[in-house]
């Protein structure tokens, strides 16, 4: 039985963006973020918006999914606009006045600028998780974090933890479903009452789930030790993610464009 689990937000389509190495995409996100913060006017934002629109189009991620992050942030966006655009009892001339409350022209423009910047950042950076599988992300993250091992940051171990978590999400989801069915068969109701009562109904699900998880962890530790796991050191990888020439070229080109736009506009 396959339990559909919506973890991550990966959109499984083929596109040139999907084909890029995870590390490349992390680099692109960094360059893009820097670029967006460097531009200080609407022409710059317009160019960045163009970049985002073009990238989404190339990635073949459906638009309604690409902008999902913006909707989640609508409150923050509205707050940004209002905080910049509204004035209380201003001394200077304003656009519109409603008693003591006034809409301030230049302030509103600043608000629009900041809100647009947030929107671009959200859509642009979310493309990383939309076009990269969690496993690729983890592997890329391990490589990117590796320099931190100099300061004793356990990059390999952290990546291994994430991988195991990913590996057991479907298993745990299937198990949770089994327990829910078992408890339902005994008369438990998960769809009645207010939020507190509903949350309480899940206690008899969570307890066996956690007990099983601990048992699992014990077995897994034995299995990993038996197979000579001794931390990230000296480990080789079957599918080491490699950056191909296309990755380097994309990264170099994008970084150059971002710097140019950031400095010029």
């Amino acid at each position: 039985m396959r339990v559909p689990v919506a973890f991550g937000q990966y959109v499984p389509v083929d596109s040139p963006i999907h084909a890029l190495d995870a590390k490349t995409k992390m680099g692109l996100v960094a360059a893009f973020t820097a670029g967006v913060f460097m531009v200080d006017g609407f022409p710059g934002l317009a160019v960045m918006a163009l970049v985002v629109v073009a990238t989404v189009a190339v990635s073949r991620v459906p638009w309604h999914i690409a902008i999902r992050g913006v909707r989640a942030l609508s409150f923050i966006l509205a707050f940004t606009l209002l905080a910049h655009g509204l004035r209380w009892n201003p001394a200077t001339v304003t656009l519109v006045r409603l008693g003591p409350l006034a809409v301030d022209g230049p302030g509103l423009v600043t608000g629009v600028f900041f809100a647009a910047r947030i929107m671009l950042l959200v859509v642009g950076t979310s493309l990383l998780t939309l076009t990269t599988t969690p496993v690729q992300l983890t592997d890329g993250l391990e490589r990117v974090m590796r320099p931190l091992e100099v300061v004793r940051f356990p990059a390999g171990e952290v990546a291994m933890m994430l991988t195991i978590a990913l590996r057991f999400i479907p298993t745990t989801a299937a198990e949770a479903e089994k327990i829910v069915i078992a408890q339902t068969a005994r008369g438990a109701r998960f769809d009645e009452g207010g939020p507190i009562r509903r949350a309480r109904a899940f206690v008899p699900v969570l307890v066996p789930l956690f007990i099983n998880l601990f048992r699992r962890a014990e077995d897994l530790a034995l299995a990993m030790e038996s197979r000579c796991y001794r931390g990230g050191r000296g480990r080789t990888r079957l599918n080491a993610s490699v950056m191909r020439p296309a990755d380097w070229m994309t990264l170099a080109f994008a970084t150059a464009v971002m710097i140019a736009v950031g400095v010029a506009l």
């Binding site: 496993v135 991988t163 590996r167 298993t171 077995d219 897994l220 299995a223 197979r227």
Partner: peptide
């Protein structure tokens, strides 16, 4: 337990 000793995704 066949489930608990598989590490890879």
């Amino acid at each position: 337990n066949p489930e608990n000793q598989i590490v890879g995704t």
